[in-house]
Write a protein that binds this DNA or RNA. Structure first.
Lengths: 196, 196
DNA sequence: TATTATAGAGAACGAAAGGTCACTTTGTCA
DNA sequence: TGACAAAGTGACCTTTCGTTCTCTATAATA
């Protein structure tokens, strides 16, 4: 009676849903990927939809835990170069961590169908990033590392292009290195444009 | 013997696929939305996949026709304000034209599954926009409306945030007006940052 | 050790999927 | 007008889907 089966099912579901979408995923394969037979899944979840909802619960909770509170905001860079370094660390992590990649893909695939996925997608892809870098840029302005300007606008102008490159990596992983180089070039260009 | 049924099928397929994805779409409903019965579809297409491939052919051809050749590049703005106006016209059109919205959604939903969708998605969401505005900004630099800079980098920095807002409109149509205002604000902010 | 709740297997179910086929209707053209 | 090909229909086939049921193995508990 292996414990933690519920968690394994959710992990496998994330994998399948991110590759084939909710509609394209079938319970047999999902169970098979765990060495189980489909009926066994129903000992842990009432239905396919229940698996989906539990997965979304998990993703929402994870996001809130990871990015929800101000104490998880990144430190304010002490130099322009530090902003570039921090950015590269973050992007490198986010495009290489399989779990995060799969989460983005699921949100991308289900954003038009599921209201909670839609909401989380907007946070993941847009507002969450803007919020985070709004704080970073406010700090950098206070330190005189950036021209005084609307920090939210700057954060949006900074994160949206990087987000686009992250999506490119999700879509075409073979372009990851090229995209990373572009992230760095963009980061430096941004500093040249908005630096003091 | 109604003519143009093939085109109508493709139009209905675009609608269904963009709402529910390829896997989530079923032939019966697709046919019913045209007042037909599913077997009738098979007079025009060999299979569901054939419909999908024909739809992609159409999308690829349409894109090539519309954005493929240099003669379709937008005119170079004669003033900063004209850039804002042109941008607003383009964005307004692209978020309100149902066909284009559905095309973006389909590409979003199928980008991880279908190689051609993936390729077209990158063009639609990234490289195509960069190419187009690379030309625009080169022209504006020549006219002394923008600081001399790498036009491709500028085009990327300009179009990626706007693209993010277009995706937001696709995902949450009720935020369209708000997003449009943000596009305009961003466009002006961009000019303030990069103008002479 | 006897009991019991849990996790799994396997067969089977009804519904829905994509697809086929024989037949009918309809517009076109010789 | 009659022949014919194209377009549309309805019944049916096979497969696959999500789900349920009965039964068994197992680990924990009293």
């Amino acid at each position: 009676m292996a414990k933690g089966t519920k968690e394994k099912i959710l992990a496998a579901a994330l994998e399948q849903f991110s590759q084939k979408g909710y509609a394209g995923t079938n319970i047999r394969e999902l169970a098979a990927s765990l060495g189980l037979v489909k009926s066994s899944l129903y000992k842990h979840f009432d239905s396919k939809e229940a698996i989906w909802n539990a997965l979304l619960d998990e993703m929402i909770a994870y996001y809130a835990e990871r990015f929800g509170s101000p104490e998880h905001l990144p430190p304010v860079p002490k130099s322009p170069e530090e902003l570039v370094e921090m950015t590269m660390r973050m992007v490198n992590f986010t495009v290489r961590d399989e779990r995060i990649v799969m989460t983005r893909k699921v949100l991308t695939l289900e954003q038009y169908r599921d209201a909670r996925a839609r909401e989380l997608a907007t946070k993941h892809f847009l507002t969450g990033l803007t919020d985070m870098f709004s704080h970073v840029f406010t700090g950098m302005m206070d330190r005189g590392l950036l021209r005084r300007d609307d920090p939210r606008m700057l954060a949006f102008a900074y994160t949206a292009p990087i987000s686009a490159l992250i999506h490119l990596c999700d879509r075409e992983p073979e372009k990851t290195e090229e995209a990373m180089a572009q992230v760095e070039a963009f980061s430096r260009h941004f500093l040249a444009a908005y630096g003091v």
